[in-house]
Nucleic acid binder design. Sequence first.
DNA 1: CATAAACTCTATAAAATTTATAGGGATTAT
DNA 2: ATAATCCCTATAAATTTTATAGAGTTTATG
Lengths: 138, 138
Amino acid sequence: MLSKKTKYALHALTYLGKHREHKTVLIQDIAEEHNISHKFLENILLELRKAGYLGSKKGKGGGYYLIKEPKDIPLSRIIRLLDGPIALLPCVSLNYYEPCAECKNEVQCGINKVMIQVRDETLKILENKSLQDILDGE
Amino acid sequence: MLSKKTKYALHALTYLGKHREHKTVLIQDIAEEHNISHKFLENILLELRKAGYLGSKKGKGGGYYLIKEPKDIPLSRIIRLLDGPIALLPCVSLNYYEPCAECKNEVQCGINKVMIQVRDETLKILENKSLQDILDGE
DNA sequence: CATAAACTCTATAAAATTTATAGGGATTAT
DNA sequence: ATAATCCCTATAAATTTTATAGAGTTTATG
């Protein structure tokens, strides 16, 4: 399951995607719309900005706005950014690899081999779904 | 990512699958082979037995053994049993459904719609991989 | 029949992670 | 000058995961 962080990020991105005609959107507006703690959401939007998905404007009249095309924001990226690895095991993660302590020999581990396949197929799914697909369903 | 519980369960099932010629296998043997805490593994094997994957024999000379064909143990079942939902959100879980608190109207939620698709495609993957596939890779 | 070897079961403790809060800073429009 | 707004880091609270403990129960065996 996705963490609340990632779920809230998706809601925020969706909200921002639906309000692209406005220059900026307030954290508060998104928080109220979805009953999310203002401060928690603040941290999430900050991460999304640092990762290059959002722009922001400080001061009075400021707020956040989307700086990427929704079709260029795949689910895989958002999930990885906020939740970490998409792979089911550290030993098959492309971006967060770590050996499994309980595994004596990764090369001849059947679990490892199967999980590489699962990872590749899962990635195909999540790379092919973007914020645009979410917006299309609203 | 899978929890350690599920990961250990997969190791245990694999071990039991590789030792089907023996009548029973000791918890201790599996625990030692993979450096897993004996007591933690004990709880996991108990769950697998209660769920109908393993049989056990008490007392001296006892132990655990596989009572299903490896091809009839899909990853989806093991993951669900020990880690819970495969769906990425509670609002699209087939087996553990719960509405999302922050979602005003599930029916017109684009995230919900996309996550249903992700769930279905993910399930296809995990239902088509079984313990047999793991054993084939050892 | 006594003993030791195993699994059974439930409770609890420890550790790690996630979720939430707090508060002072910096910037900007008016 | 002021109020509105994002920025940043630290910490607290809650939850979940991981691990441990210990008293049952069953069974093989000498």
